[in-house]
Design a protein around this nucleic acid. Sequence first.
DNA 1: TCTGGGGTCCTAGGACCC
DNA 2: TCTGGGGTCCTAGGACCC
Length: 420
Amino acid sequence: MFALIDCNNFYASCERVFRPDLNGQPIVVLSNNDGCVIARSNEAKAVGIPMGAPAFEYEEQFKQHHVHVFSANFALYGDMSNRVMTILADYSPEIEIYSIDECFLKLQGFNHYFSLQQYAEQIRHKVIKWTGIPISIGIAPTKALSKLANKIAKKFSDKLKGVYIIDTEEKRIKALKWLKVEDVWGIGKQHTKRLHAQHVFTAYDFTQLSDEWIKKNMAIVGLRLKYDLQGKPTLDLEETQAKKSIATTRSFETNYTELKQLNERIATFANSCAEKLRKQKSCCNSLMVFIHTNGHRKDLPQYNRNIVVQLPFATNSSIEIVQFATRALKQIFKHGYAYKKAGVIVQDFTPEEIEQTTLFETRDKRHISLMKAVDNINVQFGQQKIRIASQDLSRIWKMRQEKLSPRYTTALSDIITINV
DNA sequence: TCTGGGGTCCTAGGACCC
DNA sequence: TCTGGGGTCCTAGGACCC
């Protein structure tokens, strides 16, 4: 059996842990730049605030329903996630951390020794008691079915106490008939359109389609999903592996028109990618730089370009990656446009310790110890204390974050105080 | 005025080889 | 009119996830 454990309204719940006065109150969390709604408490969902809602369009509604608005505080969410996952890891030797707020546990053979219902209730109790984060648990013979069981646990949480187990054929069929096809894990917008045209409206209908049709229209991924939903385990836990690409991309708080401005941003993004690369002990062999105008402004001329650069050698030096990235930017930059978004993505990794030498150019080995020193200083004395000169030295981070909560758990200066 | 960010996997088709 | 057959590798783009 697989368990899928999911934190309820995770970002909103994290904010609430340190603001118990907000229990029962509507909360939303906004994306970077305070752009869109990316998390909502149940109360916020109930007053009709949709996922992804642009904040500026919903200001009236926020006021009207006394919604508490937070800027995204990823330092806090990341740390709370680690705490939850650490607790969950005690409950099975086989665990897959699927996202910041979800994880699969493999419970092979557990049902011979435990009541899975009691086991799940115990997990739930401990997580809420130790972290303050409410969770839901779905248990079933396959991963896709455990996702579905989790949905049921959440939907009917009052009655089910946040735990649902699909352990009989009757329950499986009933659950599949209840689930709309567009809500099946792995079926998105495009497939939904095609499936509706085939008069497929529930997960159950989907499992009745022929293998041929699914293979043809949804490829092997769709077929695996069908088997998994039929209760034949096809998807297994996935090893947590090193990342295959690393991105730093941002929308700007204003439009940029000059190469100089973009150059500074790209240098900063490239530097951030290099830091992340060093953290996972990889070097990249290629990188992509992209720049976009504002797609929402149909009245302005549009220009979207990206460029992929093959590096002459594998590197994770900030200096070298910034150089390659800014050089690439110059090749795609065009005057006369208002740029709103840009990013750097590094890819095609090789392990740090393996060096593939080339005939003509090699990485500057002095950078290895230099970067180590830079990383150490930045860890000890605060992020970005040492930067590349092409970054703006006066600028720390100009993101709009007007409703940022304290970093309660990751900064001593922000630690919670209690007045008795 | 204001509309997020970071990932994965799969496939078709082009370019190339003999 | 008719123009082989069998491969590999790479990449862009599509689809999906949270």
